[in-house]
């Protein structure tokens, strides 16, 4: 008895895994930009890869990363309509807006993910003032909440959140400036 599933050649499986490796960072960042909870991003990204694998025959040629992001948008839009899916989204109105507007907007993670590949984010992190770099270290590398960081600094949580926002802006400006320079 022959399986109804389309049998992909071994080469295609290897190709897919290679592309998971290549595009996973960009996909995860794009999912986060749609307002998905930080802790649910990886879970959704995995779902997207499984769906993509199941629908590989739908992908012809072109930007595989962009195709993955399209799948992610459809998946999140579907989940937005389900009660269970809302748990993975921070705020429905926010995600609705992002889903609507992202059709016209340039995919935010594309350029940034490239920045990872060329190491500009690292350069920019090293340019942060020591205190700012320490705060980023606490927030992302030690995964401390703003409240916990505030406790370490004996400052209010709001101060930490505002500082983190300022630091992210500094990093963003730096990364984009560097990327622009290198693309010239």
């Amino acid at each position: 008895m022959q399986s109804s599933k389309i049998e992909l050649p071994v080469r295609s499986q290897e190709w897919f895994i290679e592309n998971v490796r290549k595009y996973q960072a960009r996909l995860r960042a794009s999912i986060r930009a749609l307002g998905v909870r930080p802790e649910a991003v990886d879970d959704l990204a995995q779902d997207v890869f499984i769906l993509a694998w199941q629908k590989m025959t739908d992908f012809g040629t072109g930007d595989f990363g962009a195709w993955l992001v399209q799948i992610a948008r459809r998946l999140i839009a579907n989940e937005r309509r389900k009660e269970a899916g809302r748990r993975r989204i921070l705020a429905g109105e926010f995600t609705d807006f992002m889903l609507r507007s992202l059709a016209e907007a340039k995919e935010p993670a594309e350029q940034l993910a490239q920045a990872e590949e060329i190491g500009t984010l690292q350069d920019c992190l090293e340019r942060l003032p020591p205190k700012g770099r320490q705060m980023i270290q606490w927030r992302y590398f030690e995964q401390l909440s703003p409240g916990a960081i505030a406790s370490r600094l004996d400052r209010p949580s709001n101060y930490v959140r505002q500082s983190l926002l300022r630091l992210r802006r500094l990093l963003l400006q730096c990364v984009e400036r560097q990327s622009l320079r290198q693309n010239r």
């Binding site: 895994i17 998971v20 490796r21 996973q24 960072a25 995860r28 960042a29 794009s30 999912i31 986060r32 930009a33 307002g35 930080p38 991003v41 990886d42 990204a45 995995q46 992002m98 992202l102 907007a105 935010p108 993670a109 940034l112 993910a113 920045a115 990872e116 984010l121 980023i136 992302y140 590398f141 995964q143 926002l165 992210r168 802006r169 990093l171 963003l172 990364v175 984009e176």
Partner: peptide, 23 residues
């Protein structure tokens, strides 16, 4: 906001102890 959120996740990814865990 889109770019800040994307950057947030890239920082999170960069902090992962095992770079192959997701894969």
């Amino acid at each position: 906001v889109r770019r800040l959120l994307a950057l947030d996740d890239l920082l999170r990814q960069a902090a992962e102890l095992s770079p192959t865990a997701f894969l």
